[in-house]
């Protein structure tokens, strides 16, 4: 495709913005989730060190949020070619930006939920062991928010080079 009204020179800018948004926002969500739930786990560990292993679940879930961002970033990056071989349309660039933003900001939402639920849930679990199943369920529902972002991002990304 030649350089035209529909594929201007600055179109790849939006694709790279999408890559950056997926990675940066996804990592921000994962970082908040890890840090906030880590505070709770440290607080529990000083009193009941035998619960640490089971309390690490929110940290693993935060890691998954970052993996979602990573998947979208890798997918967009593999569509990119330097200009002489590929002149991408502005539509494709915006689509990449949308997929990156959707997975990134959904990751922030999921990470925020996992952080707060992880902190409070782990502390409650220290005093009442039946909270565990409920805590895992709430964490999974928080995690699913990030998964929705990933699904929308994947659909947008697969449509972008149709």
């Amino acid at each position: 495709m030649a350089d035209s009204e529909f594929s201007p020179k600055f179109a790849p800018f939006f694709s790279f913005a999408g890559i950056a948004a997926a990675m940066i926002f996804g990592s921000m969500g994962a970082a908040y989730g890890t840090a906030k739930s880590g505070i709770g786990i440290s607080g529990v560990g000083t009193f009941r060190s035998d619960l640490i292993m089971k309390s690490l679940v929110p940290v693993v879930m935060s890691g998954i949020i970052a993996v979602y961002g990573l998947v979208i970033a890798v997918l967009i990056a593999q569509d990119m070619q330097p200009p002489p071989t590929q002149n991408m349309s502005l539509y494709t660039g915006f689509m990449h930006l949308a997929s990156g933003l959707s997975v990134g900001l959904a990751g922030v939402a999921a990470g925020y939920t996992i952080g707060i639920v992880g902190d409070a849930g782990v502390r409650a679990y220290m005093q009442q062991s039946r909270v565990y199943v409920g805590m895992i369920l709430i964490l999974i529902f928080g995690e699913v928010l990030g998964l929705y972002g990933l699904i929308v991002g994947l659909i947008l990304n697969s449509k972008s080079h149709g």
Binding site: L56, V60, Y68, L147
Partner: peptide
Amino acid sequence: PTVAGIIAAVAANVVLFTY
């Protein structure tokens, strides 16, 4: 690539549930 992305996300969740 889309299917591969889905497989990667599923793999991450498998690790979580194994944990």
